[in-house]
Design a protein around this nucleic acid. Structure first.
Lengths: 236, 236
DNA sequence: ACCTGAACACCGTTCAAGT
DNA sequence: ACCTGAACACCGTTCAAGT
C-alpha cells in the first residue's frame, strides 16, 4: 500500500532524536503510529503533540490527514478490530466461533486500552462492520434464527468484552507477580473485615497453577454449550 | 451523616451563578459533586476546575480534601459500587445473585462512564471490597467450592460488565429512537457489503417490541443455569 | 498540497501567601 | 485549618502564513 515509505526515509537527515523515520505523512501512517504509541505508553500518553513528535513532525501537520483526535481514536479502534480473526461461515460453527473468541481475547490483551475505548465510539469503521457482519453470517449459517442469532451474539460478546475488562483491571499480568501482590493483600486483610477475600486469595490465587486466564476457557465453554442448545436440533 | 449541610447553606450570600450551595468542603461533598457532574455532563467534563466551580470554590481548594484527580476517580467508582445491592448470603442463592446482577446493571446504566473507568482503577475502595467479599461469601454459602466460586464469579461479572459496556456503546437509549437510527443505518447499507447486518436490522431491531435490554435477562438465565450445574447437587 | 509559528482557551498541579 | 493568586508545564485546535 505505502510503497513510497522506504524511499522517502533516505532523505531524513537524522535529526538526532529517536524519530529516525521521516516518511511523508499519510492517514495510515498517522493511525499506525497512534496505535503503537497507545500500546507502548498507554492511551493517556497519546496526545496530538506526542504523536507528532514520534512522527518527526509538528502537531498541526496531523490535521492535514485526520479531522481531529476523535477521528484518531475511531481509527485505532478499527485497527484493533481488524486484528481479530474472522470466523468462516462455511466451517463448523463451534470451532469458528471459539477461534474468533480466542483471537478477540488475545487482541484485547495486546491492546488493553481498547475495550474501554469501544464503549465511547459511536461511528464504527469498516473493519468493525465487516467483523459484525461476518459474525452474524456465521451464526445464521450455523442454523440460528434471526432472533437466536441476536441472543447468541449479545451473550458471546458480553462475555468476551467482560472478560477482557476484568483482565485489563487486574493489578498483575502473568502468574509470577500475582503471588507477591496477592499475599500482600491477604496479609493486609488477615483477620479483618473481608474473610472470604482472604480465603479466596490464600486457598485459590496463591495455590500453584492458578491463572485468571483459565477462566476464559471455562466461561467460553459454558457459553458455547448454551448456544448449542438454542439450535433447532440443539437437544440431539 | 453530613448533618452540617443544611445549616451551612444558609450563610451563602447567593452569589448569582447556579452554585447556590456553599457548605464547607469535605471529602464526601467533593466526591458527591464529582459523581453528579460525571452523570450530568459526562466523565470528560469532570475537571478539577469545573468541579471547583460547581462547588463554588477555587480549584486549588479541592486539594485540601483529595490527594489529586486520580483519588477522585477512585472515589466515585467506589460510590458507584456502593449503590449496587448486596446479595444476602443467607437467602436462596439464585434469587440473591439475580437481584444483585439486576441491581448492578441498573447502576451501571445510571453511570455509564463507570464501567470504562473500573478497568483502569487499581486501588479498590471499601465499598468495592465489601461488595466482592459479600459476593464470594454468598457463593460459598450456596455450596460452591472455592474453585467453583472463582469460576462462577468470573463468569457472572464478565457477563454483567460486558453487557453494561455493550449497552453504554449503543447509539440510542430506549426503543423510540432505536427505530429511527437503525432504519437510517439499514438504508445506508442496503444492497451493499453488509447483508447480515441489514437483515438483522430490518427483521429484528426494527420489529416492534425489540429491546436490547432483554438480552440481559436472557444471558443471565443462561449463566445462572450453568452455575446451578456446578453445585455438588447440581444435576438433581 | 503539505507543512508550520503563534496564539487561544483549556488542563492538573505546585508553591508561597493570605485568613 | 482552610482557602487562594499566580505560575508552570501541559492539552486540542484555529488561523494566517510560508514553501
Amino acid at each position: 500500500m505505502t510503497s513510497r515509505t522506504s524511499a522517502a526515509t533516505s532523505r531524513a537527515p537524522g535529526t538526532g532524536d529517536h524519530p529516525a523515520e521521516r516518511a511523508p505523512l499519510s492517514h495510515e501512517r498517522v493511525l499506525r503510529c497512534a496505535l503503537a504509541l497507545a500500546d507502548a505508553q498507554g492511551i493517556g500518553a497519546l496526545t496530538m503533540r506526542s504523536l507528532a513528535q514520534e512522527l518527526g513532525v509538528k502537531p498541526m501537520s496531523l490535521y492535514h490527514h485526520v479531522a481531529n483526535k476523535e477521528a484518531i481514536l475511531d481509527g485505532i479502534v478499527d485497527l484493533v478490530f481488524a486484528e481479530i480473526e474472522l470466523p468462516s461461515p462455511g466451517g463448523d460453527w463451534r470451532t469458528e466461533i471459539r477461534r474468533r473468541a480466542g483471537s478477540a481475547r488475545e487482541v484485547l490483551h495486546r491492546h488493553p486500552w481498547a475495550v474501554a475505548l469501544m464503549e465511547s465510539r459511536s461511528s464504527p469503521g469498516p473493519a468493525s462492520l465487516r467483523h459484525h457482519d461476518t459474525m452474524l453470517g456465521t451464526l445464521r449459517a450455523a442454523g440460528f434464527s434471526v432472533e437466536m442469532t441476536g441472543h447468541a451474539y449479545a451473550l458471546l460478546d458480553a462475555f468476551v468484552y467482560g472478560h477482557a475488562i476484568q483482565e485489563a483491571g487486574l493489578p498483575f499480568t502473568g502468574t509470577d507477580d500475582a503471588a507477591e501482590i496477592t499475599s500482600a493483600i491477604a496479609a493486609q486483610f488477615a483477620g479483618g473485615d473481608y474473610p472470604h477475600m482472604v480465603e479466596f486469595a490464600t486457598e485459590r490465587v496463591l495455590k500453584p497453577g492458578y491463572d485468571f486466564g483459565d477462566e476464559f476457557e471455562f466461561g467460553l465453554g459454558v457459553v458455547l454449550d448454551a448456544l448449542e442448545r438454542l439450535l433447532p436440533d440443539g437437544g440431539a
